[in-house]
Nucleic acid binder design. Structure first.
Length: 362
DNA sequence: TAGTATT
């Protein structure tokens, strides 16, 4: 099998229009193979607006999207730009690929048509010979398919290889074949066998990432000395919950009128009585794209969630900006509210509270 | 023995 070796060492745009071999127009999808670009290695702090501004300077953009973590709203460091004119897409590659932004060198290339077959095609390779360079590693793997990206990790100080790398294939099936063919094999002239396996999927870390993010967010929001105890208390609670430790709020009687009064007085509002299902929480300032999974994942780490609901516009089916979450236990609901109210999700700041009873008109 | 490329 003859395959193309594509070096990513110079962050070259390496896949031309139609290079993925999928004919457009056969499935009713618009042919955007010559206008749709993927942009990689973006600085972590780049916003959607900056992203649009940078690529909009080339020509008219049909659409663009900075891809962000669905739960934390953090940039994932890549995005898509679809131009109106294919010439502008070409121009963007020629002028912006390799552009240095902060510590990153961005890569601009044509996006491959989205498909399940290209997902989860990233491999983690360890025990590589320390003298093997990126090109040699690519040559070793290229017999199994088309390589999209490759990287060898190096010591920050000495620059010497750590014997660890990544290889992303065009297709998952190619990655599978590479594992079969190379895992446990000794490269020519090496005495130690290499390990080849699928790279960890970043989405598997979102639970921990969320807690870390909340920890930082909460720490930033309670910096005043008067709130020091409150801050410590909340951060400890987050950590305890992450390890399944009983919440320190558990000493409070659950569903107790005293507890309700204390919160009511603090908030200055009256609460609906807990239903048999639990405590209803109002979540405001969700994006139009928000769905139920976001609410599950946001509130799940705090305890038992029995129901979530995103309120949608009847005609567009887009979120109207708010939703509800029902949690079984008062203390867990209170902790979720304390932690998530004011939480920044993407470019929005959430408002989270117990659902209040609407004042009835006289 | 861990960076981050599919909307």
């Amino acid at each position: 099998m003859v395959t193309q070796i594509i070096s990513t060492m110079e962050t070259q745009a390496n896949n031309g229009p139609g290079s993925a071999g999928i004919l457009n127009g056969t499935n009713g999808e618009p042919d955007d193979s010559k206008t749709n670009l993927i942009v990689n290695y973006l600085p972590q702090n780049m916003t959607q607006e900056e992203f649009k501004s940078l690529f909009g300077s080339i020509g008219e953009i049909e659409s663009c999207k900075l891809v962000r973590d669905k739960i934390t709203g953090q940039s994932l460091g890549y995005g898509f730009v679809n131009y109106v004119d294919p010439n502008d897409a070409d121009k963007a590659i020629n002028t912006l690929n390799g552009l240095k932004l902060q510590t990153k060198t961005i890569k601009v290339s044509y996006a491959r048509p989205s498909s399940a077959s290209i997902r989860d095609a990233n491999l983690y390779v360890s025990s590589l010979p320390k003298n093997m360079n990126q090109k040699e590693m690519e040559q070793l793997f290229s017999q199994y398919g088309r390589i999209i990206t490759s990287r060898i990790l190096v010591d920050q100080v000495t620059g010497v290889s750590r014997g660890v790398g990544f290889i992303r294939f065009d297709k998952r099936i190619e990655a599978e074949e590479a594992i079969k063919g190379l895992n446990g094999q000794k490269p020519l002239g090496s005495s130690e066998p290499i390990t080849v396996k699928f790279a960890n999927n970043p989405s598997q870390k979102t639970g921990q990432a969320l807690l870390t993010h909340l920890y930082q967010t909460t720490a930033r929001r309670y910096t005043g000395p008067l709130h020091h105890q409150t801050q410590r208390f909340r951060l400890d609670s987050l950590i305890n919950m992450a390890y399944g430790v009983k919440s320190p709020l558990s000493f409070l009687p659950r569903f107790s009128p005293i507890t309700i009064d204390s919160v009511t007085n603090l908030a200055g509002v009256s609460l609906t009585a807990p239903t048999t299902a639990g405590w209803c929480i109002f979540v405001y300032n969700l994006s139009p794209e928000a769905d139920e999974s976001v609410l599950w994942q946001l509130f799940g780490p705090f305890g038992a969630v029995t129901n979530v609901k995103v309120i949608r516009d009847f005609t567009t089916n887009k979120c109207k900006g708010f939703g509800f979450v029902t949690m079984t236990n008062y203390d867990e609901a209170a902790m979720a509210i304390a932690s998530l109210n004011g939480y920044r999700l993407g470019d929005r700041v959430l408002q989270v509270s117990f659902k209040t009873s609407k004042p009835h008109k006289a």
